[in-house]
């Protein structure tokens, strides 16, 4: 245990201040302390992507991230994506979610990709999502969904 620190960050667009052990996993901070359970724990060691969040716009696995690394950062979780993010509708319509446990992380990874590359090829999507495991879908419909979301005229996206 290290000495607690006062952490200031922007979480889902809101300024947040909390006193926390800097070595606490961000995944635990989110799920247990802040009640944001949309990020899931599939492996706890950076392999599955179920815990993916956006740190200053880049996708990171929150199970490998420590609270101390959040100082002054902007953190976005699945709960912080705009309600009309076209990925939501696209995932639902394409059948890209089954059991759903991988889905928040998958959507976050797809958002990170589309923010960087608004019109990625299927091959690019395939590569960009290769760090997110899904055991249900075989990925086919997830790729379809991201392609479909990319086709939605921008302006609806954040």
């Amino acid at each position: 245990m290290s000495t607690d620190i006062t952490l200031r960050l922007t979480l889902n667009g809101q300024p947040v201040e909390c006193v926390v052990d800097p070595t606490r996993r961000v995944l635990d901070l989110l799920r247990e302390d802040l009640g944001l359970t949309g990020s899931k724990e599939g492996c706890g060691e950076g392999e599955c992507g179920a815990c993916a969040v956006l740190l200053d716009g880049a996708m990171v696995n929150s199970c490998l991230l420590l609270a101390g690394q959040l100082q002054d950062a902007a953190l976005r979780t699945i709960e912080g994506l705009p309600t009309d993010d076209p990925l939501f509708e696209a995932f639902a319509r394409a059948g890209a979610t089954q059991c759903g446990i991988c889905t928040p992380g998958m959507v976050v990874a797809a958002r990170a990709l589309l923010d960087r590359e608004p019109a990625p090829s299927r091959e690019r999507i395939r590569e960009a999502l290769a760090g997110n495991l899904c055991r249900c879908t075989g990925y086919v419909r997830i790729l379809d969904a991201v392609e479909a979301a990319a086709r939605v005229p921008s302006g609806r996206a954040s």
């Binding site: 247990e32 949309g38 724990e41 639902a92 319509r93 059948g95 979610t97 889905t103």
Partner: peptide, 23 residues
């Protein structure tokens, strides 16, 4: 017919509550 899944909306938004999400 390809009726969209009834559980899709809450799953894609991370709102579905799995056992480890409950306390």
């Amino acid at each position: 017919s390809a009726v969209p899944r009834k559980d899709a909306a809450e799953k894609v938004r991370g709102r579905a509550r799995y056992i480890d999400d409950l306390k």
